[in-house]
Nucleic acid binder design. Structure first.
Lengths: 192, 192
DNA sequence: TTTCTTTCTTGTCTTTTGTAAACGTTTTTT
DNA sequence: AAAAAACGTTTACAAAAGACAAGAAAGAAA
């Protein structure tokens, strides 16, 4: 169960066995079914999640509409970082899109790990560096690319996700309406 | 000169005097005039910049057009993180918009600081956390808000920058054309 | 299976944006 | 001071996206 997690950590730093045991005992396993909220609107969250299996999305509600801003699958951390770090109530919702298996890390436990494991800061620093690069690319794509280009990029870079997530969620994730995505797809088919 | 930098670092961690001296000696001061490229297209970069004074932007070239993707002023780190971290050639350009004063940190020197200063990983981790929150907010704004809303948000959150940066650069930064921004501004004036 | 819900597509109409070019103004350079 | 470059706005037209509603298709639940 935690082997999968340490396959992930090994890409960043070489934790010693004692470190891994500390880490493993700090994280708790959680099995949740589809459509479960991991983080709720207007509440504080003190949990980070490592997704072992399944699929999650993060979304906002704007004018009564659900707008998906992030989608992720296996082997990644997710959380409402803003609320987690600053302690403020969070405006986003994180929910499962499939039955999912998670490792949950509590903020207090994380703070303890920073003290007890010397490599912990370096580990998180490296994860954040990777995450930042990804966010930078996503942000750049919004400025640089048209919705159609963003869709075709998603198609080529992450084809798997298209089978796991309903199109209307992908649409808002791309910054457009479901109607518009449907038309873009039609346009692409007609071209080929 | 470095006092200003340590006023910044103090917000994150309490470096000891010896640490600060190591840091100070690793960073070099650079004075550059307007329109100087700090990072160039298709070249690798091994430098990070802390902006003491002035204003910078990061931009891409798409279809011969300059598209600004980031603008920042005093007291922040900037760099082509992607190229800096992964060692690949970078597709963006960073240039000064005003005569600027910088502290420059080299990748090799940074790696040395990670070894010599125990708090260094924690310091960078905390900066990255803040940066990630900012990027997340920017990205969310692109998905959630209309160009007009993004402009009015920028207006209220960072009015100073409007006086320092030409409007056509702000336009692309907002993901729209200069023409469109001009129309949005007109629309806003007519409303009030 | 049958029903119910969710998802996807299509049509019409309106609004917004992009493109390209022109024009006046301001700023910078020589 | 004169010339050149950069900047901001406007116009006309084309392309794309949003809103809204209707209906088909697919999937889940009873």
């Amino acid at each position: 169960m935690t082997e999968q997690f340490f396959t992930y950590t090994d890409k960043f730093v070489n934790f010693r066995q004692a470190d891994k045991e500390l880490l493993a005992s700090a994280m708790s396993f959680r099995h949740v079914k589809t459509k479960t909220d991991l983080v709720s609107y207007d509440k504080r969250t003190d949990e980070l999640f490592f997704l072992l299996k399944g699929c999650l999305r993060k979304y906002y509600i704007k004018d009564g509409q659900q707008i998906t801003i992030y989608i992720t699958a296996e082997n990644s951390f997710i959380g409402a970082f803003d609320s987690f770090i600053t302690g403020t109530a969070c405006k986003e919702i994180i929910e499962t899109l499939e039955p999912s298996e998670l490792l949950v890390l509590n903020k207090k436990d994380l703070d303890k790990l920073y003290k007890d494991i010397p490599l912990m800061n370096e580990f998180v620093r490296k994860i954040l560096e990777q995450t930042l690069i990804q966010f930078q690319q996503a942000l750049t794509s919004f400025i640089l690319d048209s919705p159609e280009e963003r869709y075709t990029k998603l198609l080529s870079q992450n084809p798997e996700i298209l089978q796991r997530v309903p199109q209307h969620m992908l649409a808002t994730y791309l910054g457009i309406t479901a109607t518009s995505l449907s038309r873009i797809r039609k346009r692409i088919v007609e071209k080929s």
